[in-house]
Design a protein around this nucleic acid. Sequence first.
DNA 1: CACGATTAGATCGTGAACGATTTAATAGGA
DNA 2: TCCTATTAAATCGTTCACGATCTAATCGTG
Lengths: 147, 147
Amino acid sequence: MTAPAPPSDLKLDEFLCFAVYSASHAFNRLYKPLLDELGLTYPQYLVMVTLWERDDRTVGEIGERLFLESNTLTPLLKRMEAAGLVSRSRDPADERQVRLRLTDEGRALLDKARQVPPCVLDATGLTGEEARSLTDQIGALRTALSR
Amino acid sequence: MTAPAPPSDLKLDEFLCFAVYSASHAFNRLYKPLLDELGLTYPQYLVMVTLWERDDRTVGEIGERLFLESNTLTPLLKRMEAAGLVSRSRDPADERQVRLRLTDEGRALLDKARQVPPCVLDATGLTGEEARSLTDQIGALRTALSR
DNA sequence: CACGATTAGATCGTGAACGATTTAATAGGA
DNA sequence: TCCTATTAAATCGTTCACGATCTAATCGTG
């Protein structure tokens, strides 16, 4: 005689973490075909965005911007270097640091990349204003979680 | 003479996708020590939640619930089986399907797991009502993105 | 009933994430 | 000046995520 399992009070659909987790994957799936056009993966695209914003950054600066550590970034950046998008070189003034610079090819990719965000906004079904609001709310959430 | 780089109009901080991506990682980092107590990774925890909600599910049903495919789930579920949390067995009525069932140990873990969501809500700094609202907005976003 | 089409999982290879550790360079104090 | 502490990346091992493909079981139509 097995006792009936006590009902679980953990409801997946009410989990904020799961909403975020699954939305993150949904974004990834949406981006995949768009970024394939650029020869980038999603995290590589984020690195490119940080370098398009400001070139010539250290691994640590990029990591600070993207909330990633060198153990994630080093292999990713090496793949980007192999793809001809960035150069990696030790800073002569401080040989501990590795500076990332866009190649001409990497810089040129910005033109194509400008077409991506409008496609993505369209797929969200949100207005620009709604998207901004949600971005701010989730940004604040990330800040709270990182304490 | 290199021309000054044209300013990028792609602003990382305005990217909804990046807010979601980085919040997802922030959740993971928050969950890690909590779930270490239970001997679970975060995706394994999600599988447990689905089975606590309803036991005896196929790989496909779990995947439908979590938006994951068998190529992700099969190895994950095998690790959970090896950890003694679930059993995997072919459905006699349809040998293509593999049914997942909680072991006694897996069922018993629910008690400990109930302590997790309050900790997480606390870390978000949100009220229950705010968290619910955000969960709904992000859930709707995921639905829109998956079209 | 047969047999091609479909379905459910599993397998394989690649690229992230990340904890833990290591290596090399710089900084700073006795 | 040396020598210890700190810092920046890199390395290693494990677990996800996912595209592509494979295998085996079942379905459906003639």
